[in-house]
Design a protein around this nucleic acid. Structure first.
Lengths: 199, 199
DNA sequence: AGAAAATTTGGTAGTAACTACCATATGACT
DNA sequence: AGTCATATGGTAGTTACTACCAAATTTTCT
């Protein structure tokens, strides 16, 4: 890796760290992009090159965690057992998020306070689910492939969201991995009140 | 209803109609709030009183459809059978959306083109799911009520989203209600590749 | 009917996120 | 060392949105 890339990584991290510092101290809305740029000792112009919007400053880590796992899934052989593969996807996302619990909590804190952050967080997971749907559809056969894939991808996204939310809400509760298994068990075992089917 | 309320309703509708006209003709990003205000023959100041952000102009109908159904659910007696109730919620939302198919299609069109619209659309459904979770949790008993409620609410949201998406993507396909039943059937009958449970 | 009160409207001034663009500086390569 | 590619910082401008105020309009009270 050249010196150039190294510096890029460093500035990128510096900017997002300073941003989080200011966001958690004074709130998302009360922090201006210029203040962040000043704190990171770069021009606003440079900051915008790394982070096109204020929200991406907050969501980079979550987005990377989620799409990292998705990319792993994409590289798996076509014969991969889907249920097993989906479990691995879930565990990979959770593993990534657990590498930086404080950051995850801060993100959810900010999303709770600011509508546009919550909106963009929702958008990231929504986009993630759509891309998982495409990948899944390519691995399915039979009737209404798109439909089935979308339902499966939605279920996976759901499990992740519920587990993360529960984890964030009570930090000293059950282990993340156990929560995930509990969720999958409930879904499979019929422990969830699902809507009835009646024509 | 007094003259004041009547005029308010009228201006509100006028504004959102003009907004959709401009959005679909020239795109969301290429339409300014001032242009919308001018087209509706009101001051920008007035427009902002009705619609606090540009995105609410787009999402009002979808939001009303979804939260209308949720409010119906909230008013149901505590003894209501949950699976049946959830099916009704789904059908109510879909009924509301079907009252204005063009508008729904336009919304999804705009969401596909503009990130911030897609973000706010995601946020609306996310918030809807959260409120459904709260309502459901109040009607459940036993262990891990919150957890179960969140999973159920997520499943409901999922069905709605998949059905609407499928409906929007091919307008002349299966009836919305049939799609919904198909989705519920697949979910209950194990036709979906769900992640495995293994500790 | 007419005055007073409440509310809606439109306009002004200002903030801040973001874009387009250009000159300068800084690593990379021969 | 010199040239090339890329990263940086600054300037000017657009636009969404906020706070605030004076005029207009609807409702209410006498």
């Amino acid at each position: 890796m050249g010196l150039r890339e190294l510096k890029r990584e460093r500035t990128r991290r510096l900017i997002s760290d300073k941003a989080f510092e200011l966001f958690t101290d004074h709130g998302f809305g009360r922090t201006t992009v210029e203040q962040i740029a000043a704190a990171a000792e770069v021009g606003p112009s440079t900051l915008y090159r790394y982070y096109p919007t204020k929200e991406t400053l907050v969501l980079e880590f979550v987005e990377d965690s989620m799409f990292g796992a998705l990319n792993w899934f994409r590289e798996q052989p076509a014969e991969l057992d889907l249920p097993d593969g989906l479990q691995s996807v879930i565990e990979l996302v959770l593993d990534q998020l657990e590498r930086n619990p404080d950051r995850v909590r801060a993100v959810y804190e900010l999303a709770g306070q600011t509508a546009s952050v919550s909106a963009h967080l929702a958008e990231v997971t929504w986009r993630w689910r759509n891309e998982l749907t495409v990948e899944l559809a390519g691995r399915l056969a039979g009737d209404s492939v798109e439909f089935t894939a979308a339902l499966a991808a939605g279920a996976v996204m759901n499990i992740i969201e519920v587990v993360v939310q529960t984890w964030v809400d009570n930090p000293d509760g059950t282990e993340v991995k156990d929560l995930a298994h509990e969720a999958m068990g409930l879904l499979r075992g019929g422990g969830i009140p699902l809507p009835t089917v009646q024509a």
